[in-house]
Design a protein around this nucleic acid. Structure first.
Lengths: 84, 84
DNA sequence: TATATATTACCGTTATAGCAGTAATATCGT
DNA sequence: ACGATATTACTGCTATAACGGTAATATATA
């Protein structure tokens, strides 16, 4: 089961990241080290800063074993075209 | 059906955004206007710039009607805890 | 084929994200 | 309850993302 994110994206991302970090028994500093970013950046993500850099968020999600799915009505057409 | 993104996240995001923009019959400038960001930012996203700001990417995905799902083994526990 | 128009790509200035250091707060151990 | 330790929150400097203008390229039209 997964969580869909729309208008509350930054807010939900923050909660999801914080929850998974806690469950992993990591501090913000530890997670930052594992993700190769600064601890302020982890702090920013968990505090719903919407302007964080994409690569930093992805690094954090990767460490926490969280995957991203993109969903849209056109996605099946995209698949056909991209994987010809 | 949806596309999972892992190591090729920025690359796939770029392709997904470009594909959906073309399908919508929009230019980079038009998409930028609709998303309320600069056209260089749309250009950067489509050219796989990994450090774009999260809010700008989300604005673009929103205009193109692309939703984000987060997936992880712990997600069902997250749901139970967050929506008590 | 040439010209006009539309679109993508690049440039340089400005606002700000990321960072480590440090302050504030929370938690742990005695 | 107090002191030690761990963690979170804040600060300010520096590198850079975002931006609109403009150059380069692609497409449409005559």
């Amino acid at each position: 089961m997964d969580i869909t994110i729309d208008n509350k994206t930054a807010q939900t991302l923050a909660s999801v990241v914080r929850f998974h970090r806690k469950k992993s028994g990591l501090s913000q500093s530890q997670l930052a080290k594992l993700a190769g970013i600064g601890k302020t950046t982890v702090f920013d993500i968990e505090k719903q800063k919407p302007t964080v850099r994409l690569n930093n968020l992805l690094a954090v999600l990767s460490v926490l074993n969280i995957r991203i799915n993109l969903e849209s009505p056109l996605m099946s057409f995209f698949e056909k075209e991209e994987f010809k």
